[in-house]
Structures are given as C-alpha cells and as structure tokens.
Design a protein around this nucleic acid. Sequence first.
DNA 1: CCGAATCATGCATAAACAGGCAAGTCTTCA
DNA 2: TGAAGACTTGCCTGTTTATGCATGATTCGG
Lengths: 258, 258
Amino acid sequence: MLSRERQARIGERLDREGKVVAQDLADEFAVSEDTIRRDLREMAAQGLCERVYGGALARPPALRHESFAQRRDREPRRKSDLARKAASFLEDGMTVFIDAGSTNIALAAQLPPERRLTLLTHCPAAAMAVTPCTGHAVHLIGGRYSAETGACLGSQTLSEIEALRPDLLVLGACGIDPRAGVTAFDPEDAAVKRCLGTRARSVMVLATADKLGTAAPFAVLEAGAVNRLVTDTAAGDAGLEAFRELGIEIIAAGSGDA
Amino acid sequence: MLSRERQARIGERLDREGKVVAQDLADEFAVSEDTIRRDLREMAAQGLCERVYGGALARPPALRHESFAQRRDREPRRKSDLARKAASFLEDGMTVFIDAGSTNIALAAQLPPERRLTLLTHCPAAAMAVTPCTGHAVHLIGGRYSAETGACLGSQTLSEIEALRPDLLVLGACGIDPRAGVTAFDPEDAAVKRCLGTRARSVMVLATADKLGTAAPFAVLEAGAVNRLVTDTAAGDAGLEAFRELGIEIIAAGSGDA
DNA sequence: CCGAATCATGCATAAACAGGCAAGTCTTCA
DNA sequence: TGAAGACTTGCCTGTTTATGCATGATTCGG
C-alpha cells in the first residue's frame, strides 16, 4: 500500500464518516499510529481535514472548496514543501501579492503567523485559506470569477491590479524556461500575471521541478524579470544553471529545511 | 469518541434543545461530569454557549461569536431547503446579487443549471460554490476579506457595489423583525448589506425561523423594503402575519417542495 | 442558614503527540 | 551490477493533552 493511496482512503473515510480515529486507521491499514499521524498531519497541512487530538475531523463541506485545486493534485507533498520554503522569505510588514494556483493556496494556508503581512490576491481560495486570527490583512481583488483557473480574471481585475504596488509577487508558473520565460496556459490568466509582474517590486516564482525548462503557450514574463525561483531540487540541476546566469536566485525546497 | 467530536455533539444538542444538563451529557457520552464541565467551560470561552449552574444554555443566535467556519455548517438541511426554495424564484437572464452567509452559499451551490444567470457576490465562498459549466456568469466583488463574515467588506467593496444594479438581491439576515427590519451583527457587514439594498430592484431575504422577530445591533433595511421572505414554517406562524401586513410575500420552505 | 448538588483546582495516569534516528525499500545513475 | 540518495516506516525520546479523582469553595432550594 502506497502512502498516497492510504491518504486517499483516509480522505474517503473522512467524507463518509466525518471523522477518523488514528488508532482505528493504524489497525485498518496495518501500519503504526506514527505513520497515520504523519498522514493526518500532512493532510491537515493541505486543508483536507482538521487535526484533533486522537484523530481528525472532516472539514465542513463549504470549506473544502478551498482545497479543490490541491485535492486534484497528484503531488501535494512537493507543493506543500515549496510553499513552506517560500513562506520563509516573507518578512514582517511586507505587502505580498499571491497569485492563483494550488501551490499558492498552500502558501496562503501556511503563512508564518508571527509575521504581519498585507496580502493581496485575485484568488478567492487563497484568501479563504489564510488562517484567521493571524493578523494578516487580506485584500481580495474582484472580477469575473473563472472556475477553471480558480481566480478572478478580466478587465475589472486588471484595472484593480494597476492600482497596486506590492513589495513582492509570488507567482505560480505553468512553465518556466530560461528563454521563453514564465508562461501560462490560459490567455486571460497570462494577462493578469503579466500585469502583476509590472507592478511588483520583486518577483518570486514557485515551480515544481517538472515545470522547469517547459513553456506554455502564453507569455507572462521574461525570465530575467524573476528575482527568485523556488523549486525542488529533485531533478534537473543542470537546467538550473541557466537560470542562475540570468541573475535569478535559486531556492531549493525539499532537502533543505525551512 | 474524540473530545472535539463530543463538543460538536454538545453544540448540536444545544441548537436543538436550547439547553444541556451536565449529568445527562456525562451519561450519554459515558464520561465523568468533570469532563463535560471542562467541555462546557471551553465552549463557553469561545462564546458557543452560556454556562449556567448544572449545565449550559444555547446563546441566542444574535449573541454567538462563532467563527464563520463554525456557523457555516450548522443545520445544513434547513439551509439547503431554504436555498432550494429561493433558487426556484430565479428567472433566466436575471442579474442576481448573492449576499454572504451560509444559506446563500448553499443557494449558490444549487442554482438551477437550466437557467442562465449573471451572479454578483462579495462572498468568495459563494462564487466558488457555483457549479462550473452551468453557464452562469459569476462576478466577484473584491475588497478587504473578513474571515469572520466570510465576505469582502470595506470601502472598496462599497464603491464597487455602487456601480451595480441587480434585478434581485438575495439577502441573508442575521435578524429580521417587522419593526427593527433586517439587522446584522457586524457594522461593516451591515454597511455592505445596506448599500446592496439601495441598489437592487427587488429584495428577497432568506432567514431560518429562529431569526424571525429577532434583531441584531446593526440596521440594514426597513422591513418594508423587503419584497419576499423565504423561511421555514416550522415555528412562529403568528409572527409571520406582521410581515404580510407590510406587503412582504412569505415563501414557506421545508413543507412545500421546490 | 443548612444540606446537597455543583463547581474550580490540583494532581496522577495514561494516551497521544512531535521530532530525531535508523533500518529497509525504491529509484537513479555510473 | 553496485553505490548513492530520497522516501517510507517503525521505534525511541521527552512533551503535551485528556481524563478521572480528591479537595475545598460556591451555589441552590428550601
């Protein structure tokens, strides 16, 4: 039994019964409670359940919408690691624009509570994922909501963004390549990202290793406009060199800790 | 039985019966009264109930400071019934503003797919709840996101709303009373609702029966400004007469089907 | 004002917990 | 084929949490 498979089963059971008990799960899957605890901790970090003493509770149905993107995700672990690493670069008092996308939602969910940030986003799921009572101010940019991308797009969104001047843009990339730069699958999404890129003082891109060296059809930014690239080192160290030569600071998540 | 689960059950029972007795609970859950007392103390500290000698009382809805997330999934059945009834009044081509609140999110989730609506909302969860691929256009109003109310509030939100002219406003009420009118718990939420009321051509209020005849601290609309009131008939038929006299059309959900 | 019930608090115990460590498995690359 | 590295898992450590019981203090009803 693969750990992901086990987690999927736990998720099903949460849906069905509303709660799970660590001990029962350990029994059922014939693994130690430690392993189950690790699973539950991981699932909770992705917003798939609420961790409680002794087990976990299903998140109320309405809250689950927040994680729809992550739920579909095949590699939540990697994204969560990326997000955690990215979070460590957010400094107290910063104004940070959080782009749409599952990795960014994961980032919103694990913002450092001890810092006080002003967060801007056009992604409702990200706004809702920010843990309440943490002192972060969240400003949501409106517009036509696109269920496909999980973000607000269109002219209204663009014109609102033009009034902003964030210290940092945390950009999710569909593809990033030294020559093609940052690219996206959706033209409107790309337009918003492009607009964001012109407004922010600094740009940090989050991209899992499989996106390095790939290009989607719609251009967002020149690679040179990116200041930092957070990725998982697992693969493609060779490819990273080209980014470094463009003056991009490479942040390795996964092996190094936050 | 997980301790958090126990507390949730106690909460449900408070909702249902209005009070709980420590001894009964200890019996029911097979724990000591001390444990129940600890639960009740904790719940009271979160404002979920009022501690009294021998047990606890449900706080009137107007006094609960439950987080939005907690409030959201109370009595999903009733809310869903209300929402379904409300949905039957939405006509093809209408521009509908959907207010924040759990009942409204339920409405967004079960909009009639065969009709094509333009939906406006300042509630991200509602926008995300609209089933994709149904042909409804969703426009999300931005602003400062308040985790407490689950909606965008503040001046930005207000000024965006002023540019709108929806055919129908579906308003969630924290309290509705023939004399006090529609009221809300949060001043900013009330300000947004008030603004909405001035823009819409028609106003439909969704309110579970427990909110009828109650008033929260902040005024939203005169009762006379409401065109339709969707509620569950379960209780307070006497109270309904006063609304009818104000020219409000009363829609009963629950008994009658959609 | 009295007895009984209820309560808050401190303590002891057992369970659950996070984090670190090491053994085993799998993949990757030479 | 074999070595290196990532991942998973179980176990160990000390810490935290939930619970029941004992002890006085408080509250209630008469």
